[in-house]
Simulated assay, not measured.
Amino acid sequence: MNPRVIGTVRSHLVSRDQCPKYGDTSMPPVWIELAPDFEPAATDLQVGDAILVLTWMHKGDQAVLRCHPQGNRKLPMRGIFSTRSPDRPTPIGLHAVRILGREGLRLKVHPLEVIDGTPVIDIKPDNATLQGTAEFSSLVNPDTGQAILSAARDGWLRGLFAGFNGNVSMRQGERVVITATGSAKGHLGPRDLAVVDLATGTPLTSVRASSELAVHLEVYRNQPLARAIVHTHPPKLLALSLRGEGPLLDLPLFEGRVFADKLTRVPAHRPGTPELGQAVGVASRDFEAVFMDNHGLVCRGETMTQALGLSEELESLAGIAMRR
């Protein structure tokens, strides 16, 4: 009995002879066209997700029980269950891929080495990526994850983070990837990243998000240009604010005027509260940097480099202001 088909692969490969014996990352991506009936099941699939695609290898010979591995007759025959041959009693293919694009019910994935017209019988999240210390969650795009880890490390090296304070995030479609609570920013690993739903804040991974999640969510919700956020506790800027000597960064320097115009401040609110998140979110509509009195600095950017770079500029100017 054939399983229920949920979609079809649209591939440049048209015959078994053209298919590589193992996943070939040099191949172009292919498309999976899902059947309309399964639209509700695909609602949460997003670009960047790691998924397992199960196919029905309809051209396979279901009578085969032994074969030459990789079709190489110079190799001794082996039982079919110890090979990945498409010829097998139940010809189910298992493919670890990432979603590179999405157009409605069409998913662009890579690498998937099956012939055009191959039926798709199921899709699952690739939770196996959580088992390796060098792998990100199936919900974290590797480029996003690496950008967060690198920014946290760079900020720590520049003294913007100390110990376990601060947090870093990036928007990934309708999700937010953010550093975990209690994580040391100078020593992050893939398991220190949490994923939450942007609209509701619902956690999508078992990793607990930073206590300042509300700030990040409100900035993304209020400012469509925000794609990355860096929240630091910059010692010079904090020390300058405690002097209470008027506006922050009131310097007769060209750079001072340029960057001071990007900065505003909000009154003190208890960290981690909705009130703080709402105050910073509203301020982010007009400013790229928000100083939270008695707490720290939040910088947004269209890229992680912009967000971190603005944090560095403001801390550098604070150092100059303190020496006046």
Rank of each mutant, 00 (worst) to 15 (best):
M1I: 14
N2Y: 08
G7E: 03
H12C: 09
Q18G: 08
G23C: 01
T25G: 00
M27L: 13
A35I: 12
D37C: 03
D37K: 10
F38P: 12
T43M: 04
V47E: 15
A50H: 11
I51K: 03
D61G: 13
A63D: 15
P69K: 13
R73E: 15
G79Q: 06
I80F: 02
F81M: 10
D87N: 15
T90D: 14
P91H: 01
G93L: 04
G93V: 02
V97D: 06
V97S: 05
R98I: 08
I99E: 09
L100E: 05
L100S: 04
G101L: 04
E103H: 14
G104P: 14
L105T: 15
L107M: 11
K108A: 09
E113R: 02
V114E: 00
V114M: 02
V114K: 03
V114F: 03
I115S: 02
D116L: 04
P119E: 04
I121Y: 13
I123H: 07
K124V: 13
T129F: 05
A134N: 15
S137K: 10
L139S: 12
V140K: 10
V140T: 10
P142K: 15
T144W: 06
Q146A: 03
Q146C: 01
I148K: 03
I148T: 12
S150K: 15
W156A: 07
R158Y: 14
R158I: 08
L160A: 04
L160D: 07
F161I: 03
F161Q: 11
F164M: 14
G166Q: 12
S169K: 04
M170T: 12
R171P: 09
G173M: 02
V176T: 08
V177A: 07
V177T: 05
V177H: 07
T181G: 13
S183I: 04
A184T: 14
L188H: 07
R191P: 06
R191I: 11
L193K: 00
V195A: 12
L198Y: 00
A199G: 09
A199I: 06
T202V: 05
T202L: 08
P203C: 10
S206R: 15
V207S: 08
S211T: 08
S211D: 02
E212F: 08
A214N: 02
H216M: 05
L217W: 05
V219E: 03
Q223M: 13
A228C: 11
A228Y: 03
V230Y: 10
H231D: 08
H231P: 00
H233C: 00
P235D: 04
K236C: 10
L237G: 01
L237F: 04
S241K: 05
L242G: 10
L242P: 00
E245W: 05
P247N: 11
D250A: 13
F254Y: 08
E255D: 08
E255I: 01
E255S: 14
R257L: 09
A260I: 03
A260V: 05
D261K: 09
D261V: 00
K262G: 06
T264N: 08
V266D: 06
G277R: 06
G277L: 02
A279C: 11
A279H: 07
V282N: 09
R285L: 04
F287M: 07
A289R: 01
N294C: 09
C299A: 12
G301Y: 11
T303N: 00
Q306L: 06
Q306V: 15
L310Q: 03
A321K: 02
